[in-house]
Design a protein around this nucleic acid. Structure first.
Lengths: 244, 244
DNA sequence: ACCTGCATGATTGTATACAATCTGGCTCGC
DNA sequence: GCGAGCCAGATTGTATACAATCATGCAGGT
């Protein structure tokens, strides 16, 4: 979540450099596929700057876990094994479940309205026509993030808000499978509505349970899709770097 | 936790630079107090390297949240408000509670022995004499980390293991208050024993409950101590912006 | 007296040059 | 024919120089 132009992790951290945000976005959106070797010189040319800010940005995304750094041997876009994805989603379920639990007692009317709007946008998108598949995924990701981010913000725990992007921001390439079928999207919308309802009622336990199930469902769909396609370089050996 | 010389956050990331680990340690151990402005040139001289690796390291600790970066105005060691500490400990309770829950079904005999040893070391330290207060705190921190890290490792969730240091690694300055009184240390040891017992029995729910209470207790003691001392720049509102 | 605007010093952001290290293939010796 | 050691290319790690940006203090006008 939170992949804004100045896309930052720590709630505030506005700066450092814009290169960081650009690189982060490129990785998350899949322009550099998992397993790709990131040579500093090449990135520098791609981004139109020198190696210095590139190195900076690489160090930062490495802390987030989006790339792996090998001493004296450079950076590689992190590949996620099956187990990695399971771990990430399990953890996310715990953390966002906790966020929903806390949000139940604190969420403001304005935030409830935001949730309502995001849920409605996602529902409306089922009838909407998009020029490209990519545009559609972008739309879905954006409003889905809005929904989840609003709940996280409503939890009132700044640390949680700052930390969750690191858990959630897995390359889009993986996540896009979540909405592969219309049926799955309908199920997802169903959970959004139920979560919203629980938050309105102030039912913390139920909000958590629903959120956790919502996330677990996302995990299962993702893993099934990956197993079917079996491409996408999920189990790709890191030694094999794609040149372009 | 995990403040080893090569101290890294991502489980693997061995390199990048050693400067990162050193800077990280300096901040965590309180050599640079919260609120201190970190001028690159000065750090470079302190660490005996040029500004380049220092910048690198600053970017990384900023992602972790140990320092705040202000564009064109440099870095400042992060100050923790009362609310920040509450948030961090709440989150830690959730995450480590989850770790304990999972560990209950998976922990190995070897890991149980490690826990036993760490708990025994902490208990023995009550009768032990230390040359300085600092040496004592170091000993306590080390074995306490060993205890907690073992459980986290036993949880079998790599992502959790990689992420927790970011939540837990708050400047030592704050944490050292946790063991201010002998009584508090005894209580802490009591919980270690009970947690160990629950893990041995494979009682996941109980392990989680005990771990959470253990952490909440740590939080309370810390906050009370801080309120009493009221020094330490906790509520320090330096010129820089508070969080949202 | 106070506010505005500029000059100056300090500090960050970027680029480039060079040293250290690794990878891969080749030769030489067995 | 085959393996150990070395040489060359590529790439990372570090240092230094320079440009861009910001804070501060002072002067001058209203």
């Amino acid at each position: 979540m939170q992949v804004e132009p100045g896309g930052v992790v720590e709630a505030e951290a506005p700066g450092g450099d814009a290169v960081y945000g650009r690189l982060r976005r490129l990785i998350i959106e899949g322009h550099y596929a998992p397993g790709t070797r990131l040579v500093e010189d090449r990135l520098a040319r791609d981004l139109g700057v020198s190696r210095t800010p590139v190195r900076q940005a690489l160090a930062r995304v490495a802390v987030e876990g989006l790339v792996q750094l090998f001493p004296n041997r450079g950076a590689v876009v992190r590949t996620f094994t099956h187990a990695d994805l399971v771990d990430a989603y399990d953890l996310r379920a715990v953390m966002e479940g906790y966020a929903a639990y806390r949000a139940a007692g604190r969420i403001s009317p304005g935030q409830l309205a935001d949730l309502e709007a995001a849920a409605a946008a996602l529902e409306g998108s089922l009838q909407q026509h998009f020029p490209t598949r990519q545009a559609e995924v972008h739309f879905l990701v954006e409003h889905n993030q809005r929904f989840h981010n609003t709940i996280i913000a409503a939890s009132g725990n700044a640390r949680l808000k700052a930390l969750l992007p690191v858990v959630v921001d897995v390359p889009l390439q993986y996540r896009s499978f979540n909405w592969y079928t219309r049926e799955e999207r309908a199920v997802s919308n169903f959970f959004h509505r139920r979560i919203l309802q629980a938050l309105r009622a102030g039912d913390a336990d139920r909000a958590r349970a629903l959120m956790q199930e919502h996330i677990y469902r996302g995990r299962d769909v993702l893993l099934e899709s990956l197993d079917e396609h079996a491409t996408t370089g999920v189990h790709q050996r890191s030694s094999e770097a794609q040149r372009d």
